[in-house]
Design a protein around this nucleic acid. Sequence first.
DNA 1: TTTACTTTCCAAAACGTTTTGGATTGGGAA
DNA 2: TTCCCAATCCAAAACGTTTTGGAAAGTAAA
Lengths: 335, 335
Amino acid sequence: MGSIRTLAGSLGLSITTVSRALDGYPDVAEETRERVRKAADELGYRPNAAARRLRKGSGETVAFVMPTEPGRFYEPVFAEQLAAIGEQLSEHHHDLVLLAARPGPDEAALYRRLVEGRRADAFIVVRTRKDDERVHYLQQKSVPFICHGRTDSTQPYAYIDGDGEAGFHELTARLIARGHRRIALLSAPTSLMFAARRAAGWRAAMAEAGLATTLMAEEAHTEEGGHALATRFLALSERPTAIICATDRMAVGAMRAIESAGLTVGSDIAVTGHDNIPASLFTDPPLTTMELPMREVGKRLAEMVLARLGGADIRDLQEVRPLIQHPRASSGEGA
Amino acid sequence: MGSIRTLAGSLGLSITTVSRALDGYPDVAEETRERVRKAADELGYRPNAAARRLRKGSGETVAFVMPTEPGRFYEPVFAEQLAAIGEQLSEHHHDLVLLAARPGPDEAALYRRLVEGRRADAFIVVRTRKDDERVHYLQQKSVPFICHGRTDSTQPYAYIDGDGEAGFHELTARLIARGHRRIALLSAPTSLMFAARRAAGWRAAMAEAGLATTLMAEEAHTEEGGHALATRFLALSERPTAIICATDRMAVGAMRAIESAGLTVGSDIAVTGHDNIPASLFTDPPLTTMELPMREVGKRLAEMVLARLGGADIRDLQEVRPLIQHPRASSGEGA
DNA sequence: TTTACTTTCCAAAACGTTTTGGATTGGGAA
DNA sequence: TTCCCAATCCAAAACGTTTTGGAAAGTAAA
């Protein structure tokens, strides 16, 4: 029911003409085209996606594989990015297929299945790692993809990324200018590219000021991770006067640890994060943080995928975006 | 490259036999089947998804349309649910296609496009509304779907839902037993089914104890919404001694408002939420909340969709799950 | 030996599009 | 008139599977 054949039949036209009319080819009379459009609307005709994909060879399908960590997968800004990607792609009549696998052999197998079965024409790769097998594989198979975040690849690849290095450099310099000397970094695992970049920014600013970069440790980027690391640093005889966290979630955990130790965030110890999650305005005191607008990034990510599918050059699809700083009371700044 | 034809050719078999061998039909010799399997592995052959879908008529595709509100879409537990759905579906070789549209005409048009173009064989409908056009439409077109949350429909439909009514009833009764009399409810918009259910639970418990249910108001279920409503209630001459929030995010906003007013959460005013977001363990004091395990729900949602596609009866696919209560210090309970 | 049945395989049709390579018509130029 | 070209249309092939309806060969029963 509702195939192009019945539509063509009811119009007394060939299916060729109907197809070309709807696809906007120039070799069909304007009057006919209108007639076809109207009938298609009335019958609620939509070309069968599978048939179209089969014939065209390309499926108009973009895959997004969530790297679900063992245990909970809780990414504050994730949903927003996904929504933006979905909106943008669907506007251009592309499908976003969502999958999930934890990094490791399962993930690799999933990528192979998607590529070999031609279930996806392009990929969006998030949460990039330093040495990223996903990137290797897609490059080798020459499947189009866009990364959110950079990776250590010798071959060119398309990406969009926030400038975490510059952001953390600027933040660290700001704290140094306010008199801080012992500034700790609570990092996420540095095998994750975003964590490595942010750490590099902190390290550079500290080095420029001639300060030691010993107060640094890695943990999962969760409230719990932040709490554990902060507790450890607070027990030092020379405890830090400022704690820079890789993410807002870590900062929330760190703030809790500081309060438990009987200290006051903002006056006794500065705390900062990254992400500008909604809750960061409602911590006590409000959390100093920085932000890469996820909705914009998601939209751009989708645009870049479409561009790549359209044959755009990889070198024109490499973007690093500055972060928006939000200085607030948790670092003795802002309101 | 890599079609079933080349595979059949290289084996000296017909494509029929190859297809049936790989699909496990009984009319192919065990020896042959092994030979085919091995060759398929070596060549990395996977059936072309579009061709298979076209021929089979069913696309093995489940659609998930995110109801993106105007402005920010930030759903703490959302990513986890999505990951679980994706994992489960992909295990059964089904695709999860993700789309996004804000409730309204765009959303309706998107559903039509998906159904009429046969881009989706089934739907997962989340964030159900009292009068839900998505449900009406899918029922009318008799497209299989599963709701997360219930709705006001006279016809039967498949759903899984947390028992927010019982959960809030139990919580309210607990607070009453601890001596609270003026218990306010900070609700999400009651056009959303989950908010209406939770409000009903609170109202019933209050009525049973002969208490007034005037202390109730609706706002967006965000930190900001919670903050605004709490501020309003705190200004009353007879302010509430307990504030029940529809979500943890609202509770975070409410706690901030209480502190700003110079009061102490837990001792002066009890505060509770719902969702058990990770941050709820790291508020000061830890937040009393309740939970529907999202990973489990996601998995079950996927299973139910598959069951429905397999012809299971709707009446066997209606589940209400009890919530897990987490009494904590923010309501003077727990540790 | 013939018959009937089982096992194993296969040719061809079908799914609903898009694309290729014309065919037809009418009008203007020669 | 004849020829050419532009404007419209269309029949048939192709995309890569799965499924239908046997065919061929071997085996057991009569």
